[in-house]
Structures are given as structure tokens and as C-alpha cells.
Computed example of a mutant assay.
Amino acid sequence: MKRKYEKPSMMVEAFEANEYVAACYNLDCNVNVKSITDLNKNIIGKSDGCKKVHENLKEEDVKIGFSINMKDGVPHEYIQTTYWETGIPGFYHAHHGDLKPSARANAS
């Protein structure tokens, strides 16, 4: 019994994630300045510079802004800064440097 010839074909399956995985970061609070700004350089508060590593910060809680270095009471230099809330209005933890993804990912 002969089989009918079928032309070789390739089947491609696309990966579909069944869960949303959010990025998490481990950041050290290494900025101690009087002024933290949003991206529009509007002052929003100050950084406490607690020098602790804050682990598993969710991507939506981490914001990008600037810290201001003052010289003679005048803004001298704006440095891009990652900041996140401390739980006290007007005070933020802040980090200079690269974002470091944590080893743990949060599944929502």
C-alpha cells in the first residue's frame, strides 16, 4: 500500500505567556540631596540617603527624575535619578546608577 506524497512543511508555534510577569528591582538608596524633581524638573521633595538596599521594588513604583546639586544656593547640576516613595510625603529614596533587576519576578 502506497502513501500519498505530502509536501514537507514547517509548523511554527508562537509563545504565549499565561501570566503577566512584572520587573522588580533591588536599588540602594545612595542619594542624599535636598531636592528631587520629576522629569519636568519640578521639585517634588527630598531624598533621605538612607544607604540601605531596597529589594523587590515593582516597576510601577520606581520613577525617573533628577536630583539637584546646588552651588551657592542655585541649582548647579541635574543628575538623572531613580526615585521611589518612602511612605512619608515629600521624602523619597533615590538611586544613581543602573537599575538592577532582582532575582525574583513578581507574578500578578
Rank of each mutant, 00 (worst) to 15 (best):
M1C: 07
K2I: 04
R3W: 02
K4Y: 00
K7N: 05
V12I: 09
V12P: 00
V12A: 07
E13H: 13
F15L: 09
A17S: 13
A17I: 03
A17E: 06
A17N: 08
E19I: 05
Y20V: 15
A23H: 05
Y25E: 10
Y25T: 12
Y25F: 15
N26F: 08
N26C: 14
L27P: 11
D28L: 09
N32E: 15
N32T: 10
I36D: 06
N40V: 06
K41S: 02
N42L: 01
I43D: 12
I44Y: 06
I44H: 07
I44L: 09
I44S: 11
G45P: 08
G45Q: 05
G45E: 04
G45T: 10
K46V: 01
K46Q: 10
S47I: 03
S47F: 00
S47A: 04
S47P: 03
D48T: 13
G49K: 05
K51Q: 15
K52I: 12
H54C: 04
H54E: 04
E55C: 07
E55D: 07
E55R: 14
N56I: 04
L57K: 09
K58L: 14
K58W: 08
K58F: 09
K58H: 13
E59G: 03
E60P: 00
D61R: 10
V62S: 06
K63Q: 15
I64L: 13
F66Q: 13
S67A: 04
I68H: 04
D72F: 02
G73V: 08
V74N: 01
P75E: 03
H76D: 15
H76Y: 15
E77T: 02
Y78H: 07
Y78N: 05
I79M: 10
I79C: 10
I79Q: 11
T81G: 05
W84I: 09
E85D: 06
T86R: 15
I88W: 01
P89D: 12
F91H: 10
F91R: 14
F91P: 01
F91V: 14
Y92S: 02
H93E: 07
A94K: 03
H95N: 11
H96L: 13
H96T: 06
G97L: 11
G97I: 11
D98R: 15
L99P: 04
P101H: 11
A103L: 11
R104Q: 13
R104T: 12
A105E: 14
A105M: 09
N106G: 00
